[in-house]
Amino acid sequence: MNFLSDYQLPDHPQIGVVSSFSGLVHTEFSGLVNALCWPRSLAGDFKEIVSKLQLGEDITEVSAEDLLALSLSEQGNTAREIILSDLRRLTGFGALPSLNLLRCYERDEELDFFSTDVYSYHVDRSPIGTDTFLCTYHGAASDMIANDQVTQKILVPEIREKLRQLHNGPEAEFEDFLQECFFDLHYQAQPDAQPINLGNGHLWRLAVDHPQQEVLPCVHRAPIENEGEYRLLLIC
Rank of each mutant, 00 (worst) to 15 (best):
L102M: 14
L102N: 08
R103N: 02
C104Y: 10
C104N: 15
C104T: 12
Y105W: 15
Y105K: 06
E106R: 11
E106A: 13
D108R: 01
E109H: 10
L111H: 03
F114D: 02
F114L: 00
S115W: 03
S115D: 01
S115Y: 02
S115G: 07
T116W: 00
V118A: 05
V118E: 01
Y119A: 05
Y119P: 01
S120R: 00
Y121G: 05
Y121S: 05
Y121A: 07
D124A: 10
D124G: 10
P127D: 09
I128R: 13
G129K: 11
G129Q: 13
G129N: 11
T130R: 12
F133V: 02
L134K: 11
L134E: 08
C135A: 12
C135V: 14
T136F: 05
H138K: 08
H138M: 06
A141C: 06
N147Y: 10
N147F: 11
N147H: 13
D148R: 13
Q149N: 11
Q152F: 02
Q152W: 04
K153Q: 15
K153S: 08
I154Q: 00
L155F: 15
L155A: 15
V156S: 00
V156H: 04
P157Y: 01
R160K: 13
E161R: 14
L163M: 04
L163V: 07
L163R: 04
Q165G: 10
L166Q: 00
H167E: 03
N168D: 14
A172N: 12
A172M: 06
E173M: 08
F174Y: 15
F174L: 11
D176T: 05
D176W: 03
F177Y: 15
L178F: 01
L178I: 09
L178V: 09
Q179R: 15
Q179T: 13
E180Y: 10
E180P: 03
E180C: 07
C181Q: 14
F182R: 14
F183K: 00
F183A: 02
D184H: 14
L185F: 03
H186R: 13
Y187N: 01
Q188A: 15
A189P: 01
Q190D: 15
Q190C: 12
P191D: 12
D192C: 06
D192N: 13
D192H: 11
D192P: 01
Q194H: 10
P195D: 08
L198N: 08
L198P: 03
